[in-house]
Design a protein around this nucleic acid. Structure first.
Length: 878
RNA sequence: GGGAGCUUAGCUCAGUUGGUUUAGAGCAUCUGCCUUACAAGCAGAGGGUCACUAGUUCGAAUCUAGUAGUUCCCACCA
């Protein structure tokens, strides 16, 4: 049957993924092989596959597949994250569309909706990963709110509380007025904003006509001012010491305070203080015992404390207060100003600093050992520049606000008692017991205890991921955690180094006394070719599923990997996937060629085939050795590129062309068998990168038993190489190239056979390589004419041997002279450089002997070359 | 405001402890080819003062310092 000239991945890819999963080839159980473990960075349960996931998961799959073939018991644990803020927001929106308001629901009702929603829409991304070819152990799929994982979270909370590392308190936190919850410092992203700086004057109490002018970006907070602060050494304001000022509009009398915190150069050097709505003001408020007036509701509107503009949104209030200030004669001027404003990472809402009661986790003691293991390279970062970032954060780590005012998540295991005390316990029963012991006089019943309404930060469950997916928190001695932990590598994006990577290291050390992974590979950001981040609003983010349908998963995997060194941004271009698809097609056609040959067991192996097979083996060995090195350094792009070139340039363009039998002629059995072996080896080397087509061709190359798979073969290992053969063959290829160049320059048809004169003795001939040259350059005779023989045609020099192609009528002597003169100029320039070095006594005396020897060899080679060129030129000119 | 990184061909990047020709690759470009595996292809070619300046050295893309540009991270200047 005639095979199509174009490879069609669609059927093939679905077929093999089904085959792999039916045979449970991704599944792992502990055994006596060494383990190779990767836990997936769990995507949001509500997420859909984007280009960042594609990159990240392709890398993981390559590593897992390669480890599996290298004899490891490889496991890739998949799963999803409950992502409390993001998911809750989605569910709230979904309910709103149905006319249901979250406020009208009880916690239980809401959670019922949320779970239903999760069951229906959650985990799409895990289905999409299958399309990519991800060899995850699906039997092990986890979700951060699974019962066992949730128990681990609670257990860890209780443990930390009992160790005194979790506390509760009123602090200034980052409030997200849209999600109505606190978020951690790491969840705030600062963006530069074009805004205004408002200059407002405050009357000095008891000094008619005297004012202090302040500058502020947030005039609406004037309503909550409780002081004005100036620098103690600022002479402009020294005269007001001990006086008070009047807040415009509300006419409140407030103290003037003096603190070195104030920058004299900024604005007017006078700063209004609103302790309830700014972290710095808050700190000053504590220092100077200022009143704290909270003028905002949780949703960012003004409350009764503001007295004016009650119920108006903060941004509306900012506009509305301007005419009021003007009317009061307090507005001095407005300037344009660029400042940085914090936004909530999840909702993109402007963060409002807010004083509230929250739960915190102490970080200093957890951070110390976690910093150490990275600095000592027990955990290795790729690229290692991220060590700096990591160290800086760890050395300045602040306590972690772990409570969130949400319902979707792990509820804080704290129960409040009627006496306003609370207990922390694993569950309500335990809480009651503890409470009864602590406060026997209260005669407590179950209904007297009220559990905290808040849930924990999502990362408070994610940081346990490498432990909890193997149940290592609840059952630290179970065979799974003992076998699979620590994991081998973590593949993630650098933007979650603090959120997740750092905290996983802390958790691993705290609860298991062991690092959670040995290597961390940080991927770059996927951008478009104009260096813009991929985003929905720009519309520059291609749909991965569509890409895979267009180019095949193999093609897209190739595109993701061919140009993405660790830590560097990946400038994605569909052309890269196209290149991958073209490569698939190349493989397919190479197979088609081989498949089309008929085999004759009676033919002797031709000499050129024998040497080509040996050379191909050596080249493969050479490349395998390079790839092994690349993989130890996580240089996946380089590894892929080297196998790409091996297959395209060496195997297809050179090797197959040498062994290819003449048209309609059969091939000898020995060569055919060897070609099949080599092809198979190439498929194995390539398999981790392009799993589908390699599996397909591996099966097509030979009859296979039911249930056999390239996945289960052993990755070919590097063997020693014969550099003499590699060099000789490389030289033959150069000669071929030169002959082809002559053809191209002289417009000689490929069909026209040429004669090649080698200006050397016949004893120097290598029969096999000459046969290779004859075949690939379409040369019918290679004649050894001796060094002195005349040239009448085109000539070239390779490794100081002159070659010529006798051509009558086609050669233009002037052109030849021009070309030779250019060569001569280059060679002489080169020689000059070498001689300059060698004539330098200090070089000869100081440089290592081998370096000097190399230079001497360069000199003699160059001189020889110049001699040959000059001789040739003399003949042409005569 | 601090800290880290980067700057090599049109684009994206390699270039290991300074010395293997006067710096390599892929893509793109140009020229010629529908040669019986593949035009999603074949063959060939062109293209770089290694950001700049100064230094160290027998020798610098590689080490040092400075300059310029650029990216990222951290930080409570309203």
């Amino acid at each position: 049957m005639e095979l199509a000239t174009k490879y069609d991945p669609t059927v093939v890819e679905d077929k093999w993924y089904a085959f792999w999963t039916e045979h449970r080839m991704f599944h792992s159980e502990p055994d006596n092989r060494p383990a190779y473990t990767i836990v997936i960075p769990p995507p949001n349960v509500t997420g859909v596959l984007h280009m960042g996931h594609m990159l990240n998961n392709t890398i993981q799959d390559v590593l897992i597949r390669r480890a599996r073939m290298n004899g490891f018991n490889a496991v890739w644990v998949p799963g999803t994250d409950h992502a409390s803020i993001a998911t809750e927001a989605k569910v709230v929106n979904f309910l709103k569309e149905q006319g249901i308001d979250k406020k009208d629901l009880t916690r239980e009702e809401f959670l019922k909706h949320a779970w239903a929603w999760k069951e229906k829409h959650g985990g799409i991304i895990l289905q999409q990963l299958r399309k990519l070819g991800a060899s995850c152990d699906w039997d092990r799929t986890k979700f951060t709110m699974d019962e066992d994982l949730s128990e681990a979270v609670i257990q860890v909370f209780v443990d930390l509380y009992n160790k005194g590392k979790i506390y509760r308190g009123v602090r200034m936190v980052n409030w997200d007025p849209k999600a109505l919850t606190a978020v951690s410092d790491e969840e705030v992203v600062y963006k530069e904003l074009q805004s205004k700086l408002y200059y407002v004057r405050y009357a000095i109490e008891g000094e008619p006509g005297e004012y202090i002018t302040i500058a502020t970006t947030r005039p609406e907070t004037i309503l909550g001012d409780t002081a004005i602060c100036m620098h103690p050494d600022d002479e402009r304001y020294a005269k007001y010491k001990g006086k008070r000022a009047i807040v415009p509009i509300v006419n409140r009398s407030i103290p003037l305070i003096y603190d070195e915190y104030v920058e004299r150069e900024f604005g007017t050097g006078a700063l209004k203080i609103t302790p309830a709505h700014d972290i710095n003001d808050y700190n000053l408020g504590i220092k100077y015992h200022l009143d704290t007036i909270n003028i905002f509701n949780d949703n960012g509107t003004l409350n009764e404390n503001a007295q004016f503009l009650v119920g108006v949104d903060r941004f509306e209030a900012r506009k509305a207060i301007i005419p009021m200030l003007e009317e009061a004669g307090s507005l001095v001027k407005i300037e344009d100003y660029v400042n940085k404003v914090g936004f909530s990472e999840r909702t993109n809402e402007v963060i409002e600093p807010k004083l509230s009661m929250q739960w915190f986790c102490k970080m200093d003691e957890l951070a110390k050992p976690a910093l150490e293991v990275v600095m000592k390279n027990e955990i290795q970062f790729y690229p290692d520049k991220f060590k700096n970032t990591y160290a800086h954060w760890m050395e300045n780590v602040k306590d972690w606000c772990i409570s969130r005012q949400l319902w979707w998540g792990h509820r804080i295991p704290a129960w409040y008692l009627p006496n306003h005390e609370y207990v922390v316990a694993h569950n309500a029963d335990e809480a009651l017991n503890i409470a009864r012991q602590k406060y026997p006089e209260l005669n407590l019943n179950a209904e007297d205890l009220k559990q905290d309404e808040d849930v924990m930060d999502t990362w408070f469950s994610s940081w346990l991921w490498p432990l909890s997916v193997f149940d290592g928190i609840r059952h630290p001695d179970n065979p799974e955690i003992n076998y699979y932990y620590p994991t081998s590598a973590l593949i993630t994006a650098p933007d979650i180094i603090f959120f997740w990577v750092a905290r996983m290291i802390m958790a691993g050390l705290e609860w298991r006394g062991a690092i959670p992974f040995k290597d961390v590979y940080f991927t770059g950001t996927v951008r478009d070719k104009l260096h813009r981040k991929m985003s929905k609003s720009l519309g520059n983010s291609p749909d991965p599923i569509m890409l895979m349908e267009k180019y095949g998963a193999d093609g897209v995997r190739f595109g993701m990997l061919v140009t993405s060194p660790a830590g560097n941004d990946l400038l994605f271009d569909e052309a890269l996937c196209e290149q991958g698809r073209n490569f698939s097609n190349k493989l397919w056609n190479a197979f088609r060629l081989v498949k089309g040959w008929s085999v004759d067991a009676n033919i002797e192996q031709p000499i050129h085939s024998k040497t080509a097979v040996e050379w191909m083996r050596q080249r493969i060995n050479e490349v395998i050795a390079g790839m092994e090195e690349d993989f130890t350094r996580y240089r996946l792009s380089e590894a892929l590129m080297s196998v790409y070139k091996l297959i395209w340039d060496d195997f297809c363009s050179c090797f197959l062309e040498v062994v290819k039998p003449a048209y309609m002629q059969p091939i000898d059995a020995k060569t055919f068998g060897e070609i099949t072996d080599l092809f198979e080896t190439l498929m194995e080397i390539l398999h981790p990168f392009m799993p589908f087509i390699t599996e397909e061709l591996w099966h097509e190359l030979r009859e296979r038993q039911e249930g056999e798979s390239i996945m289960l073969t052993v990755m070919p290992k590097a063997a020693s190489t014969d550099s003499a053969l590699l060099n000789a063959f490389a030289n033959a290829r150069n000669v071929i190239e030169q002959v082809r160049r002559v053809r191209s320059e002289k417009n000689i048809a490929n069909k026209q056979a040429l004669t090649l004169h080698v200006h050397a003795k016949a004893q120097q001939a290598n029969e096999a390589l000459d046969a290779v040259i004859r075949k690939l350059a379409n040369v019918d005779h290679v004649e050894y004419v001796g060094e002195a023989a005349e040239v009448n045609g085109a000539s070239f020099i390779e490794q100081n041997i002159k070659y010529s192609i006798p051509l009558t009528g086609l050669v233009n002597a002037e052109e030849e002279i021009k070309k030779l003169e250019a060569d001569l100029k280059y060679a002489e320039g080169f020689l000059q450089g070498v001689l300059k070095k060698l004539s330098n006594e200090r070089f000869v005396n100081n440089a290592p002997q081998n370096v000097v020897d190399i230079e001497r060899k360069k000199q003699s080679d160059a001189e020889e070359k110049i001699r040959i060129i000059k001789e040739q030129l003399a003949k042409l000119k005569s």
